[in-house]
């Protein structure tokens, strides 16, 4: 079999798997583009950010970070904490991504929630090259997201739309993620602790300066309360 045949076969196997993500990513990406546009950024921003960051919730958050005063340390720490879940995607994919050659670099770069959920659960069909299958799933997801974001950035300016209140899309997104996380968690102390420490810091440090102390307190608090929180996790 020639390389182009192997690739075509893998693409044909991968595409149907990504169709649910096609609709979701085009739509959310489009909303993200409009959101950035409404915040005063040209379409270059959503285009470049969707291409380079490729982590949806973090990209929405970055819009707020770009509008706030320059705080590099907080930006890095926040990104690490929001994306900490990727560490565990990586751990789960260590075996599956083994032996995929240079493609592996791109596979790891594009390990967003959706690529992970497909590549972790779907077994490539018999005779289809595993590495190329994973590669096309990742590439298609990446393309949908970037296309949606760019189109949103371009169309955002043309739509005769009163965008006041559109920023609520970020709140809505995190409420949904929070709910799904709550349903998934076998213990709720960490969510409650995180909420309580965040509110405490918000009252104590104010809206502009509470994130960094809250993140530090949450990390320290979770490590300090490990025996309490973890007992629940391991309980049947």
């Amino acid at each position: 079999m020639t390389t182009s045949h192997i690739k075509r076969q893998a693409l044909t196997a991968a595409f149907p798997r990504t169709i649910p993500i096609l609709t979701g990513f085009l739509f959310l990406g489009f909303t993200y583009g409009i959101y950035m546009r409404a915040a005063g950024f040209s379409f270059w921003y959503p285009m470049v950010m969707s291409l380079t960051i490729f982590a949806g919730s973090m990209e929405f958050l970055t819009v707020n970070l770009l509008l706030a005063p320059f705080q590099p340390l907080q930006v890095l720490l926040l990104t690490l904490m929001v994306n900490a879940r990727h560490l565990f995607y990586g751990l789960a994919m260590l075996e599956r991504y083994r032996g995929t050659g240079l493609k592996k670099i791109y596979l790891i770069f594009g390990l967003c929630d959706e690529s992970f959920s497909i590549n972790c659960t779907v077994q490539p069909p018999e005779g289809v090259d595993r590495g190329w299958f994973y590669f096309f799933v990742t590439l298609l997801d990446h393309s949908y997201w970037c296309l949606g974001a760019t189109l949103g950035g371009l169309c955002g300016a043309m739509l005769p739309l009163n965008t006041q209140g559109l920023d609520f899309v970020l709140t809505a997104m995190f409420v949904v993620i929070w709910l799904e996380q709550w349903r998934k968690d076998s213990q709720h102390q960490s969510a409650l602790l995180g909420g309580a420490l965040s509110l405490f810091c918000l009252v104590f440090f104010g809206a502009d300066g509470f994130m960094l102390p809250a993140m530090v307190l949450i990390l320290l608090g979770l490590v300090a309360l490990r025996s309490v929180v973890d007992k629940e996790v391991t309980a049947p």
Binding site: M81, W178, Q181, S190, G195, M211, A214, L222
Partner: peptide
């Protein structure tokens, strides 16, 4: 352990942030 419990806490923080 942090991988299991951090997401719940961080998403609470992000809702408060919003």
């Amino acid at each position: 352990y942090l991988g299991r419990v951090l997401p719940g806490a961080v998403f609470s923080l992000l809702v408060v942030y919003c």
